[in-house]
Nucleic acid binder design. Structure first.
Lengths: 208, 208
DNA sequence: AAAATACTGTTGCATTTGCAACAAAAAGGA
DNA sequence: TCCTTTTTGTTGCAAATGCAACAGTATTTT
């Protein structure tokens, strides 16, 4: 066991999992492929430790970072629509511990009214609701018509006390916002000139 | 009972609902407000008949159509992040029948290991997974960098036998794609000139 | 049936945007 | 440590895009 988070949902999920559903757990190291989401095997993966990146490789072979997944996040091929020319996969960042849950194991009653099973499903339910919420936020972000609006929305949502720190890279953020990197830099410079933000290396301060 | 769908999940959900969870059901008429998603009351709504529109009203008062919801779709304020300056709401189109399920009623065990309750949760689980899938598809759509790519992705996904029919309006589609309407029309004309699509009124044919 | 509202189709134009290219800096690996 | 790869910062430019405006059509309301 690599961490000792105090989150109740998380603890309970691990608890219920071990009690009634067959799962496999595996630890991954830097940039290992955790799951190719185009697989036919229906399963839900739960990150118990570490971070992961959900990547899309488009028809031109470009890697696009779709999401940064962290501890207590779930991901599953169930959430993605099969497409032949586009590949989705999840890759680990450094040490990442993942539990894989077979989807059919969740669906079927494991024994006569096993209470753990019920709790497990509720726990997963909560996690999907959370995931859903994040997706809706991303849709709202991507719906903004200009690069500026996207940047400001992103910074506002992600900053704490008006301060945002670039923990990944500017490139990764540009990819996440689905905008051109050079244009991203240009717009950040403009925003700084207009005194809407202040940029000091990897620290961005929102001034308004 | 207004419809007689044969979908198993749908039937089972209605079944399980009536057996163990307190719900309210209501019929709405044209453009009635079904739910203001900024409410604090945690509930999941399930459309049993009709259609509805998920609208966002932004800081400038512009209405933006975020989603078209149909029979067997669910929606909930749980899926949206509270924001003060932006309002989300769901409005009915013509006759729409909706079941409201209290979120806490789902979470708690209704009685000692009620099997209906378990099935109900699984049924909802399936619906959220479906919703999640749709959201991911929309993210993929909005991630496309050009108006042309967005249009072609949309047409490809929504067409049947390479034919897409505009059932709502060109304006609504432009809003959904989050692009300027006039530019949408311009790009459609270009695509027609380049013989990639054929446009006959409200019928669009994909030629390649 | 008339009036009001909403949608369609089009165009000009300023601005924004993505793209290509390249040097410099930083990070990662051997 | 040196070497390789990735990221950062910048700029020019052509193309794409949003916006405003307006007339015509369709749809809805009174």
């Amino acid at each position: 066991m690599l961490n000792n988070t105090t989150n109740e949902d998380y603890l309970s999920l691990k608890n219920y999992l071990s009690k009634c559903v067959n799962t496999t757990s595996k630890t991954f190291y830097n940039k290992e492929l955790i799951l190719n989401l185009n697989t036919r095997i229906k399963q839900i993966a739960f990150i118990t430790y570490g971070k992961a990146t959900l990547i899309k490789i488009d028809e031109n072979g470009n890697k696009i970072i779709l999401r940064e997944l962290k501890e207590e996040d779930i991901f599953s091929n169930l959430f993605y629509i099969d497409s032949e020319d586009e590949i989705y996969c999840v890759s680990s960042s450094n040490i990442t511990e993942v539990i894989f849950i077979n989807y059919y194991a969740i669906l079927k009653d494991c024994s006569m009214n096993c209470p753990f099973h019920n709790q497990l499903v509720l726990s997963l339910f909560d996690l999907i609701v959370k995931d859903n919420k994040e997706l809706n936020e991303k849709i709202e972000l991507l719906s903004k018509r200009t690069v500026r609006a996207k940047i400001l929305f992103f910074l506002t949502k992600r900053s704490k006390d008006n301060i945002f720190r670039v923990t990944t890279s500017y490139k990764a953020i540009a990819d996440y916002l689905s905008i051109d990197r050079s244009n991203f830099m240009r717009e950040l410079n403009k925003l700084e000139k207009e005194e809407i933000i202040k940029k000091e290396g990897r620290k961005i301060t929102l001034l308004k």
